[in-house]
Amino acid sequence: MLAAARCVVYRDLLLALRRRGDVAVALLFFVIVASLFPLGIGAEPNLLRSIAPGVIWVAALLSSMLSLGRLFAADYDDGTLEQMLLGAAPLGVVAAAKAFAHWLVAGLPLVAIAPLIALQYDLGAGLWGILALSLLVGTPVLSLLGAVGAALTLGLRGGGVLLSLLVLPLYVPVLIMGAGAVEMAAAGLGGGGQLLVLGAMLVLAAAFAPWAIAAALRISLE
């Protein structure tokens, strides 16, 4: 079972490595969207500082969603997804591994690059840590919830747009808690509470989303 999970993660990372462009696009999208706001709004430090957590989180959300469409679609087209359904390991385990690989490729780089973006918003160095931490805990939730939506919209015409409509509302609690943690910390109240709620969301999503993904995949492949 673990061998299968390891194999799926290894496979998806190998595929991402062979298609570096796709990974770079999502990351660049994040950087560009987050950079557009200071350019559009103007260099008013107090305003920028106050919108920074929300804007960075929204950009992370959109960037993470950008690569969701390909999460199962490519495997669906070439038939490898069928083989995963007929694999020796429970489908939930494979689904969790796919979501984890998606996070490694589309979530983790955002965590690493976020402090750099925060620089543009004149966010104090003391807040970089909590921004990165909130993204570290929050982005896996995005990958897990997003994978449920990707599995549900698999093989549908216009699935990409439907996917955003389906998934973005589910991202709202993560956005509120993630941006809230940084805002609280900026106000000197400490963002621990929000981070704990984010952590609870991650635990819940990690426990239940894989089985929802598995069920959705079975329906989509009928």
Binding site: L14, T80, L86, A88
Partner: peptide
């Protein structure tokens, strides 16, 4: 059951990049 069977479908089920 899945462990007892090999199914090779219409699509070749190979990844072009590998």
């Amino acid at each position: 059951y899945a462990r007892q069977l090999v199914y090779l479908g219409h699509a070749p089920a190979v990844k072009g990049d590998l």
